[in-house]
């Protein structure tokens, strides 16, 4: 069993999920750079400590002179330069990850109302609503789905997040970092899936007894398939709503009939 750890590690598990979106790409790059530096720092400090404990072994060794302030200043300045460099690097990567990339040539070509952005920057806007313990997605045409979001590939997707009850956090590691929402504090994030496939994630904000089951999936498909899915989904919803309405309107539906339908 223990052999699984190095095996998994060598398989690239020592960094977040392999990215399928520019933002996740930036985040993974930042992760690799910063973690390598942090690991080197930690190893240096630990090795220094361990090496320093290999003392002379005398009962009463010669007492060292104390460190001069010059040494302190040089070490401090070195670390300060490192901190500033990491900060600048962090800001650059953050800005890059925040910037919505325009939809690619293979993406869904769509013009959205009320936006004066150039046509090639048009993002697909999806409203994402968190509730205990399920995500709801509302697409631009009013169609909606739960748990699984379907999006076209190579298309900039902007997610408008809100929550109906408590704090939740949207997170699909392969598509980008976390975005938390609570009632009254909406959030937004974006991604542009570079490949088709299914990407899983889970909420990272504790939200009550069902928290562990608050997962989400994004299914990335070709634009044509996305359009077909939207049509199908709209039809299904309409059908289901009609069925419900029919049953509700039929006031004298016997209870047995309802139970039978439910089965």
């Amino acid at each position: 069993m223990l052999a699984l750890v190095p095996a998994a590690a060598s398989a690239g598990a020592l960094a977040p999920a392999s990215p399928a979106s520019p933002a996740a790409d930036d985040e993974r790059a930042a992760y690799v750079v910063v973690v390598v530096i942090a690991v080197l720092l930690a190893i240096g400090l630990i090795a220094g400590l361990i090496a320093a404990t290999r003392g002379s072994g005398d009962d009463e060794p010669e007492r060292r002179t104390r460190g001069t302030s010059g040494v302190q200043a040089r070490v401090g300045a070195g670390l300060g330069v490192l901190a500033v460099a990491i900060f600048v690097f962090g800001v650059i990567v953050t800005e890059s990850a925040r910037e919505v990339e325009p939809t690619g040539a293979d993406g869904l070509q769509t013009v959205q109302r009320d936006l004066s952005l150039p046509a090639d920057a048009e993002p697909l806007e999806i409203e994402v609503s968190g509730q205990q313990w399920l995500w709801r997605y509302q697409y631009p045409d009013g169609t909606f789905s739960y748990y699984e979001m379907v999006v076209p590939v190579d298309t900039a997707v902007v997610l408008k997040l809100d929550s109906t009850d408590v704090l939740h956090s949207w997170w699909i590691p392969a598509l980008g970092g976390q975005a938390a929402v609570a009632p009254g504090s909406d959030n937004q994030t974006w991604f542009k899936a570079t490949e088709t496939g299914e990407f899983e994630g889970s909420s990272t904000e504790f939200s009550g007894p069902g928290y562990a089951t608050m997962r989400a999936r994004v299914r990335v498909v070709e634009p044509a398939e996305y359009q077909a899915w939207l049509t199908q989904q709209a039809e299904d919803i309409k059908e289901a709503q009609e069925a419900v309405a029919e049953r509700v309107l039929a006031e004298d539906t016997p209870d047995e009939q309802l139970e039978e339908d439910a089965e």
Partner: peptide
């Protein structure tokens, strides 16, 4: 502390926070 330090870079924190 090294881990916390790495996680305090914003884009890294977005992925590994929580």
């Amino acid at each position: 502390l090294a881990g916390e330090w790495a996680g305090s870079v914003v884009p890294v924190g977005w992925q590994i926070g929580q």
